[in-house]
Amino acid sequence: MEQQATYRGTVYPWQCDHVGHMNIMWYVGKFDEANWNLFARLGLTPGYLRASGRGMAAVQQNITYKRELLAGDIVEVTSHLLELREKSIRFRHDMINAETGELAAFCEITGVHMDRKLRKSAPFEDAIRRIGLAHLAEPAEA
């Protein structure tokens, strides 16, 4: 997948904990925002999800913290699609300190495509599978 940002933002003082660095709840939130930008690139847009009655659900999420982020830091997340199966995807987000270029954290997530009414997993449509398969990538070394 093209290495374009799926999230850009700033660490605000209220996002920092008693140690002075960004609290883990905000890493999760910023990675979540990146999810939706990645999904849209794959055709899983809000319009598609509403019209089709489909949704995405995370079933596993692992975060590795490499460098702390402080109030005022500018962050950028890039995302890499690692695996596409019939009903699930696995992807990785890299959170970078945009000023220093250092990897601050990375997150690997497995998500399931689901039928919202039946509350069960559902296969991806062929068009989404084609887009996804064309964008499989290996992440940079951590």
Rank of each mutant, 00 (worst) to 15 (best):
I63A: 09
G111Y: 05
R41M: 09
I96R: 06
H113A: 13
R130W: 02
A134M: 05
H80G: 07
E76W: 04
T100W: 09
H21T: 10
L70D: 06
Q4T: 01
N62M: 08
H80L: 09
Q15N: 10
R41D: 01
R119M: 10
H135V: 03
A137S: 13
S88L: 10
L81H: 06
M25G: 12
Q4F: 02
W26D: 10
L70E: 07
E2A: 10
F106S: 14
D115F: 09
L81W: 02
E125K: 06
Q4M: 00
H80N: 07
M95Q: 11
H113K: 13
E2H: 06
E83P: 01
I74C: 03
T78R: 15
G101W: 03
R92S: 00
L82C: 14
S88C: 06
T6Q: 11
R85P: 00
S52N: 05
K30Y: 02
E83Y: 14
Q60P: 01
L49E: 00
I131H: 05
L82V: 04
L69G: 08
R130P: 00
F31V: 01
H18P: 03
A142I: 07
L69F: 09
I24D: 04
P139L: 13
M114R: 08
V75M: 15
H21C: 14
M95C: 10
I24M: 14
W36D: 04
I89Q: 03
T64N: 07
L69K: 12
H113P: 01
K87E: 04
